[in-house]
Design a binder for these strands. Structure first.
Length: 934
RNA sequence: GGGCGGAUAGCUCAGCGGUAGAGCGCUGGCCUUACAAGCCGGACGUCGCAGGUUCGACCCCUGUUCCGCCCACCA
């Protein structure tokens, strides 16, 4: 290695090689060996959509989980990170239907069977992609156990779960008002509907003529207000408040529907009607509005459906039949004007329900669907968190979880799609009976013996199979060894956005079917957003393919994915607005490497709701990876032949060695603590700080004088300490930056007991270092002194190469001894000419200008090269600051209440601070007098 | 309408009842034989606003203003 030209770390060259090595070594495999007594650590990977491609959200959870998993693996756990992919019902079906559309076909042209064959073909083509992408990030999942939610065993689990829930009466079929996606033409669960603010909404008013009105009693028409005028085609009542005097004369009367001539009763309803809103009269459309549906049930109203599944008006809409709902809205308004019934409109803010998938506006519609009765399932899930069988981190989410489960509605699980798990229910054409069964077919109806049975056309909500994931992947309903060993799983780590969709449902199903929580901890991370805090979306053109960061990409390539089909200039401008720090970066992203991207993602605090991705920050962590690379290469030059036994040097004599071992103990302790507490940011931060600021900036520099001119004994001790520290630091960093650490670890001296890969080497503990407060205190003093000397050099513009005479003075004997003993280190780091002189105050000959290492209570003096005037100003500033601080301390100490009420140790502490400041002031004043002589 | 987060250095964010931190950016000096993706210095904050509790508040409480998110059937 020595003699090679200096070069930067090149991740591309390294990463593929080591990933292949880990796979080949079977590092990622969990063990089912009955003799394997290691404790288990299990994470079920949130399965990405089979047709999807890796986005930043995946990169985040993959990184976090990989850190958790690698950490535990190194700690000696039998780790299972269970990977899988999800069939993603609507999403996948939509993709394939879009392909068909380009060929001018619909799924109905193909028929169910041929369509499904087509989807499977697409799945086989594109389904492996996201798995391959994860591997670029270093994901160490047990790929041998990869599951797909529509694998035969997964499907069997789904069917079993459905049948059991049905038999227990928890799944039922019912006719209800549901959320209908007119584009995907399927029902949606409440969770799949996003409510969006509609700024263009209007409250439209029109009049219903009263039949047999008595003009003498009052108005002969009833004016209603609506945000959806076309729904008047389905009105079967108009409601007023029973106590509203304006409409008392209309109680019991009827209205004439202006288009169809239908008679519409006027009803009174105190629940539905708010007298002060709108016109005080509410049109009631039981078949297309949730409130009206309830009202209809209360009054026994007719439910008149006016919509076809594709969102057009059906035959009940009379002259408007066949029109799209929005076209019909305009047409209805036009007709109302023509009939003289329009009564005006005003802007009105409402919420628009949108399908999470298709984006189309959801229509409430009456339909017969399958539901899960959730309340009995929710109670155990609430209890499990309440009594701590499962904990949720960050804890803020517990409230949200409780609120959701405490107010849970029944779950509509059927979908009018073809791609998914078909509902295992058969419908008897003769008697209408439903047979729910584990069998693939039913020969005859158990009720009427009829032979004409057909399977329900619908499939299940994708999330139904997901809810079973922690145990279905382990073999349930079979009692497999894997299920036995790995359930309950340990941690469920995922984005908070699927707390309801997925986490809560897994809790319910896990408790129901397994009788035990599916995971011990729920770890929720925030959403990755762009640098300005905006959600990543196709519309905004601000999404980034994580692999473009890993491998590098031109901005043209990046925005081509972010905003497909848009003009490059427009896409670029949107992109640069979203990432101001990238805008200055030239033509594109360099290849940051997987390690840098991972370390960046791990360094964001997980409890933040939003994780604003900053390309500049990735750059910073790439620099860190490079730093690690270079530092280890440098160290290798000094430690090549060292032999290690896996423990820190027994009794290091050199202060610097004692110090670095103490810092090492602290850093690895903080690292494990951070990972255990789901504070990867703190863990990564501690290691980053240790490696760069302490190991590189101080320790490596401090070893130079030893290697250059130390005794053989000192050199030997330092070599071992250095080698040990590096080997340990690499192990500590490995979960975060697996590639570069493996690359270096393989070349670094290491104990013979180590396995073939760092990925299986033990994770460091504080026992790999040695806590040494004395060494820390002493080195802090040296740092202060060296820092003060450097500051003087810099402020007086002494050339960095120039050597200067240095004098240090302290009243404290121990301190003087320390400075004398460690003089060579000070001399090297400050570039001292000749010997470092250590003396008592008052020993100084004229001609020195001194500065003060305040905290160390040491005077630092440089001869000659400094300007007296500048130094005077500097000292004046220092005195000012010290005096200001003193004033505030004096004030506090003068307050009898403070002396009285503050804890004694705080008072002592403040007194010590004052004493120190007073000493400093004395130093500085003495200093000033002497500098003045210049 | 409820609920939950956020507001700290130019930017992105940590933090904490006892005299404010990091990265990036800015800035002065260095190509000092590991690293210029670097090294050594430096500047920079009435910790959203107003009250309160406390010997002491960036931190706890109350109110308030912005920003974001979630839940909810207001025509």
């Amino acid at each position: 290695m020595i003699g090679e030209p200096a070069k930067a770390y090149d991740p591309a060259e390294v990463e593929q090689r080591w990933y292949a090595f880990w796979v080949e070594q079977g590092v990622f495999r969990s063990s089912l060996d009955p003799d394997d007594r290691r404790p288990t650590y299990v994470i079920s990977m949130p399965p990405p959509n089979v047709t999807g491609s890796l986005h930043m959200g995946h990169a985040l959870i993959d990184t976090i989980q990989d850190v958790l998993v690698r950490h535990k693996r190194m700690q000696g756990y039998n780790v299972l990170w269970q990977p899988g992919v999800d069939h993603a019902g609507i999403a996948t079906q939509t993709v394939v239907e879009r392909q068909l559309k380009r060929e001018g076909k619909t799924r109905h042209d193909l028929g169910r069977e041929a369509f499904l064959a087509r989807v499977w073909k697409w799945k086989d083509q594109s389904g492996g992609r996201i798995v391959e992408q994860m591997k670029f990030l270093g994901v160490s999942a047990d790929w041998d156990r990869l599951k797909f939610t529509m694998d035969p065993d997964m499907s069997a689990a789904v069917r079993e779960a459905f049948v059991r829930l049905y038999e227990e009466g928890l799944i039922y079929r019912a006719t209800r008002l549901v959320n209908w996606d007119v584009e995907a033409q399927t029902v949606l669960s409440d969770l799949e509907v996003d409510n969006e603010e509609n700024v263009n909404g209007e409250l439209y008013e029109f009049a219903y003529p009263v039949i047999d009105a008595d003009p003498a009693a009052g108005s002969t028409e009833l004016v209603v207000a609506t945000t959806r005028p076309e729904t008047m085609l389905g009105d079967t009542a108009v409601a007023v408040h029973p106590d509203d005097p304006r409409f008392r004369h209309l109680h019991g009367k009827k209205l004439r529907h202006p288009f169809t001539g239908r008679e519409i009763p006027i009803i009174t309803d105190a629940i539905l009607v708010d007298m002060n809103f709108g016109t005080g009269a509410v049109k009631v459309t039981p078949a297309h509005d949730f409130n009206d549906f309830q009202t209809g049930k209360r009054h026994g109203l007719e439910e008149l459906n006016i919509l076809a599944p594709n969102g057009t008006i059906n035959e009940n809409g009379g002259e408007f039949a066949g029109l799209d709902r929005f076209v019909a809205r305009k047409a209805v308004k036009k007709r109302l004007v023509e009939l003289g019934l329009e009564r005006g409109s005003k802007p009105h803010l409402t919420t628009l329900p949108r399908s999470e998938r298709s984006g189309s506006i959801v229509e409430p519609l009456i339909s017969t669907q399958w539901f899960v009765n959730m309340v009995p399932l929710a109670e155990p899930a609430l209890a499990a968190v309440r009594d701590g069988r499962t904990t949720i981190l960050p804890e803020d989410w517990i409230k949200t979880y409780n609120h959701f489960l405490g107010n849970i509605q029944d779950w509509c699980i059927s979908r009018q799609l073809w791609w998914g798990h078909r509902i295992p229910a058969f419908h008897c054409k003769d008697c209408g009976e439903f047979v729910v069964t584990r069998q693939d077919s039913v020969a005859s109806c158990p009720k009427c013996n009829g032979a004409r049975l057909e399977q329900d056309e619908d499939v299940l909500d994708t999330w139904f199979s997901s809810a079973l994931w922690p145990f279905s992947t382990l073999g349930w309903p079979e009692k497999t060894p894997a299920l036995e060993r790995f359930y309950p799983t340990s941690d469920m780590e995922t984005g908070y956005d699927i707390l309801f969709f997925w986490v809560a449902r897994m809790m319910m199903m896990g408790l129901h079917f397994m009788g035990e929580v599916p995971f011990r901890r729920v770890l929720l991370n925030g959403l990755v957003v762009d640098e300005t805090g905006e959600k990543m979306s196709k519309v905004k053109g601000n999404s980034i393919d994580p692999l473009d960061l890993v491998h590098g990409a031109t901005f043209e390539t990046v925005v081509g994915k972010a905003l497909p089909g848009a003009p490059v200039a427009e896409a670029l401008s949107k992109f640069k607005k979203a990432y101001p720090s990238a805008a200055q970066m030239g033509q594109g992203f360099p290849a940051y490497g997987a390690d840098a991207v991972r370390l960046t993602l791990a360094s964001y605090t997980p409890q933040a709701r939003r994780i604003a991705l900053s390309p500049k920050r990735i750059e910073g962590y790439r620099h860190f990876c490079n730093k690690v690379f270079n530092a280890v290469r440098f160290a290798l030059g000094n430690v090549e032949a060292v032999t290690l036994d896996g423990s820190p040097p027994k009794e290091p004599k050199l202060l610097v060695n004692r110090w670095i071992l103490s810092r090492l103990a602290s850093a690895v302790g903080a690292s494990t603590r951070g990972i255990d507490e789901f504070r990867l940011d703190e863990s990564a931060g501690a290691l980053y700080h240790f490696f760069w600021d302490e190991l590189c900036d101080w320790y490596l520099e401090l070893t130079k004088p030893v290697f250059a001119a130390g005794t053989a004994e000192e050199i030997a001790e330092t070599k071992v300490t250095l080698a040990h520290s590096i080997e340990t630091a690499l192990r500590a960093l490995h979960p975060f930056i697996p590639f570069v650490t493996e690359e270096l670890w393989q070349r670094v001296p290491r104990p013979p007991s180590r396995p073939r890969t760092i990925a299986l080497a033990p994770y460091p503990t504080p026992a790999d270092g040695r806590d040494d407060p004395d060494a820390e205190r002493d080195v802090n003093c040296l740092m202060q002194v060296i820092g003060a000397a450097r500051t003087i050099r810099s402020e007086h513009e002494v050339h960095p190469g120039a050597k200067v005479p240095l004098r240090l003075r302290s009243e404290d004997v121990a301190r003087r001894e320390l400075l004398t003993r460690e003089a060579r280190f000070i001399a090297t780091l400050v570039k001292v000419d000749g010997d470092v002189v250590v003396e008592r105050p008052g020993e100084r000959p004229p001609g020195y200008v001194l500065s003060v290492a305040c905290d160390a209570d040491v005077l630092v003096g440089l001869r000659g090269l400094v300007e007296g005037k500048k130094e005077l100003e500097r000292i004046d500033r220092a005195v000012k600051k010290v005096e200001k601080d003193l004033v505030s301390l004096e004030k506090r100490l003068a307050d009898p209440k403070f002396i009285d009420k503050a804890p004694p140790e705080v008072v002592v502490q403040v007194r010590e601070q004052r004493a120190a400041l007073e000493r400093q002031r004395a130093r500085l004043v003495e200093e000033r007098g002497l500098a003045d002589e210049l």
